[in-house]
């Protein structure tokens, strides 16, 4: 087909309009959700965690997390009285299929620590991104724009909690989205939905009716690595001092 100058002049604006719609992106998918009314975090109640691995399996099913990579995982700590600063930590396959059993009367103490992205309010990972592909959303969730990400992995190195990885096939940064596609629809996260003991609870810190406020008032909670001043919003109740 011969494209004449006349055809080209007609086609060019059409192509420009098509490209415009690509740049504009998809429309808002949750019309009843206002980002500025929420500030998301999570509460993890260590004494309730039984190390069943339900959260890890649920996360992988919900978010198509590739095998061997984890957006959330469970660690089992073994702390001896004479080695408080050097706990033995295991997490076989992220705790997905549970943990080897421990005999009665063990030496020292054992406990489980579920981990996930802390959705830091001052997150180190978003600050290092050279292209603006990772960011804190107006409702306090640290997200990755996978169409914009270059896969340079600066953010993977910057996260002090080891919560990011490079997706093996997409070759871009991937991480916990706090099930953003669920919480914007009024659902809880997949890990919280699947947790049988309520050890994990999604928390909306901007909602005065959220039970998190009563819990924070009456319990001594901690965040991981508070000395790094990341503004972590995953709160741990009953966290042992040996947890890193």
């Amino acid at each position: 087909m011969n494209i004449t100058r006349r055809h080209l002049l007609i086609l060019l604006p059409a192509a420009a309009v098509a490209w415009e719609s690509v740049l504009a992106g998809t429309p808002e998918s949750s019309p009843n959700y206002t980002m500025t009314e929420h500030w998301w975090g999570m509460l993890i109640d260590i004494p309730k965690c039984i190390g069943c691995g339900n959260c890890v399996r649920a996360c992988q099913a919900e978010n198509d997390v590739p095998d061997g990579f984890f957006r959330t995982w469970v660690e089992r700590y073994h702390v001896n009285d004479w080695q408080l600063a050097n706990p033995q930590v295991i997490s076989p396959d992220g705790g997905k299929e549970g943990f080897p059993s421990v005999a009665e009367d063990p030496e020292g103490k054992y406990f489980f620590v579920p981990k996930l992205c802390n959705h830091c309010a001052d997150s180190p990972c978003t600050q290092v991104c050279p292209v603006g592909a990772t960011f804190i959303s107006p409702d306090g969730v640290v997200l990755v724009d996978q169409k914009y990400c270059l896969g340079c992995a600066y953010c993977v190195q910057a996260c002090p909690y080891g919560c990011r990885y490079i997706h093996p096939t997409k070759k871009v940064a991937d991480k916990c989205t706090l099930c953003y596609h669920r919480i914007t629809k009024g659902l809880t996260t997949a890990c919280c939905e699947a947790c049988p003991t309520g050890a994990r609870q999604l928390a909306d810190l901007k909602n005065p009716a959220d039970p998190i406020h009563a819990f924070l008032k009456t319990h001594s909670v901690q965040v991981l690595k508070p000395q790094m001043a990341t503004g972590a919003k995953v709160f741990y109740n009953g966290l042992d001092g040996s947890v890193r």
Binding site: G25, S29, A58, E62, F135, I136, K147, Y180, R182, A194
Partner: peptide, 21 residues
């Protein structure tokens, strides 16, 4: 909203749900 592509938020929110609740 900031130094990122605002439309990415809606794209992430549009992912399919697997756990019905």
């Amino acid at each position: 909203y900031g130094h990122y592509r605002g439309a990415a938020i809606a794209e992430i929110a549009a992912h399919p749900v697997h756990f019905a609740g």
